[in-house]
């Protein structure tokens, strides 16, 4: 039902519907990932591998991933990657400080705020990447070397990294981040396929 204010003539109507600007409004969506198969045209395996990783980098360097791979003890937050507020800390195991664990606010799933202005993200595994896996402020080349280094990737083999990228539920959150956040580009399946293709092509890293 539409209710009009009574007794107002010749209104200068504003188009403003709500006094609400979504904080960290999503960027224009639609940014996708090139399929792994589209890199087959690159003949040189090293160059192909590097190109595939650079495509993966769109995901790796998105706020959805970097925000929880911080270089300090404090995660980032939002598409503008501001320091997380409240000022939480990683704690002994990446699950937050005693008394203010990640699970104090982050539940098993995203929860929309009742005010209609965004959401608190959630996942059963919600936690920070260990400090040795920090990506914040690093180049794609540095991130690449780090991902391949078992000392800095949680002791994972390349096949385990493929599995992680393709199927890990917390990684998958990046494509379902809740209201107020831009999803990572593409889909987790596409990201997994790219990772597979990267490993199969020799897991080469960009220069620099």
């Amino acid at each position: 039902m539409k209710i009009m204010a009574s007794g107002i003539a010749a209104l200068a109507l504003s188009a403003v519907a709500l006094p609400i600007a979504i904080v960290a409004a999503p960027r224009e969506g639609g940014e996708g990932l090139r399929p792994a198969s589209s890199f087959a045209t690159i003949g040189d395996p090293t160059q192909r591998s590097v190109a595939i990783f650079e495509e993966m980098g769109k995901v790796l360097q998105s706020p959805r991933c970097v925000n929880c791979h911080p270089r300090t003890d404090r995660p980032l937050q939002g598409d503008d990657q501001r320091p997380h507020d409240p000022p939480v800390t990683r704690g002994p195991d990446g699950h937050g400080a005693a008394g203010l664990e990640c699970s104090t606010c982050h539940g098993p799933a995203n929860v929309a705020f009742a005010n209609g202005e965004g959401s608190v993200p959630g996942n059963p595994q919600w936690h920070l990447a260990p400090i040795e896996m920090a990506w914040e402020g690093k180049s794609l080349a540095q991130i690449c070397e780090q991902i391949k280094d078992p000392a800095r990737n949680g002791g994972k083999s390349l096949d385990q990294i493929v599995e992680h990228n393709a199927h890990d539920s917390l990684v998958g959150w990046g494509w379902n981040p809740g209201a107020g956040r831009t999803p990572a580009p593409g889909t987790q399946a596409e990201f997994g396929a790219l990772t597979r293709a990267w490993v199969d092509s020799g897991a080469h890293c960009p220069a620099g």
Binding site: P86, P87, V88, T89, G91, A97, A98, G99, L100, T104, C105
Partner: peptide, 9 residues
């Protein structure tokens, strides 16, 4: 520091 961290929220 534990108090600062645990009560920060």
């Amino acid at each position: 520091d534990d108090i600062d961290a645990g009560m920060a929220g």
